[in-house]
Design a protein around this nucleic acid. Sequence first.
DNA 1: CGTCTACTTGACCACTATCAACGCTGGTGG
DNA 2: CCACCAGCGTTGATAGTGGTCAAGTAGACG
Lengths: 256, 256
Amino acid sequence: MSTEKKVLDFIASSKTNQTHCSTCSLSSLCLPITLQADDLNALEQVIKRGRPIQKGEVLFKQGDDFNAVFAIRTGALKSFTLAQSGEEQITGFHLASELVGLSGYAEDVHSVSAKALETTTVCELPLDKLEILCDEIPDLRKQVMRNMSGEIRQDQQMMLQLSKKSADERLAYFLLELSHRFERRGFSAKAFRLSMSRVDISNYLGLAVETVSRIFTRLQKNGLITIEGKEITHLNLDALNRLAGNPVADTQCDAL
Amino acid sequence: MSTEKKVLDFIASSKTNQTHCSTCSLSSLCLPITLQADDLNALEQVIKRGRPIQKGEVLFKQGDDFNAVFAIRTGALKSFTLAQSGEEQITGFHLASELVGLSGYAEDVHSVSAKALETTTVCELPLDKLEILCDEIPDLRKQVMRNMSGEIRQDQQMMLQLSKKSADERLAYFLLELSHRFERRGFSAKAFRLSMSRVDISNYLGLAVETVSRIFTRLQKNGLITIEGKEITHLNLDALNRLAGNPVADTQCDAL
DNA sequence: CGTCTACTTGACCACTATCAACGCTGGTGG
DNA sequence: CCACCAGCGTTGATAGTGGTCAAGTAGACG
């Protein structure tokens, strides 16, 4: 790499360049989870770490050539598909350590677009290199497959939500999902920031913005959550679980 | 088709044990699609072909150990997940040449159940053997990944349907999807048999049975389809595409 | 011939979308 | 500095799509 390029990269990403999988706090959640030291090293060699992408910026677009997948290092993304008729469907929100873009594998073009919800840094895994590594490192291949399989499972859960659950149940499910994911990353399960807008939430859940807004205020009124703007300061997990239809204990769902 | 080929096919389908990928009429749609002769042979060695499963019989159940995936040789399956609250969501209908069960990979247990919609024969791919082959045959690995990725794409399209489309649009989408899949398999795009019940269709599309029934009769009244029971004898593809929100030409959607 | 299940049709109503108005915030330009 | 505007979020009123309940028909099978 030329000195000029190095300087550019340094400026671009401030200090993120020095990051390595081996020192990354996310390695226990991300692709490297099962890798041996030398395999990890091989993976590290192919990862490109560019400048951070700003809120609203697009990482890749539906229809773009599929030549890389991305692991989120910091920040958050949303991915969404566009129907021919123009409707936009948000297919997922993605937090640090998650892999984005794998749905493009089947067709050689990205099947969704990905846009930053806040300033976000990603590790880029060029497809050609990843393919080679998958054939050399069985553990990596398995990990990628697990990721894909997990996304299938997750999308199918979402289908269930969209087709069988009421607006309240969907929102409870959404909050609990997020809560759980934050917790796994070492953050509070009961207090966090919604990086996505109400419009995004409503789109994702198949509801109107107004409905989401109303339910938030109702949940607050009934003491299930404390929320101000994007800031959630308290989740009543048990009550939400009951509302979402997940048995918590042998209690009844009378929170509303 | 030669007489010889006919005889082979007959033997294949009656005494299913003798079947081979190399002689299977589905090889151009199924996993073997990109495989070389010797790789195909290796794959063939690990495939188990059991007795046909009858309509209503379960191939695997949500929660079962994930130790195999299945390719459908003849017939059709539905897969579905059960929510904790007991609701059932059909996550897909599967036709000959399609792979079922891959969503279990992430968690080592099946995340859905699979049940036969009619008498069905499958090729069982034991997971341990498949894993080994994936590491030995890059083309096979790619093909499995393509399958997974394709299922993600498909499920996300379904999310869009469920969250953004009206009942009519969903049913049109459903019929067109089926039509397209039959066509790829060499059957008519305009006339086929619905192997699933109305209840299944309504469950899959997130509607009430009554709604599906009503829309079928309305579509028939308006000349978009001809249907009697499970037998569809004519689809007006253009009109359905317009109804589903897929631009066909520069025509307006005034079919209803 | 009776029973069962799948499907259809009708009447009614609830959930949630839609429309409209308003407050708040942050950015932009005079 | 303030006026203006756009985007986001909230709240209220109204209406429509599709669910629910109920009853009836048709086909499959013993």
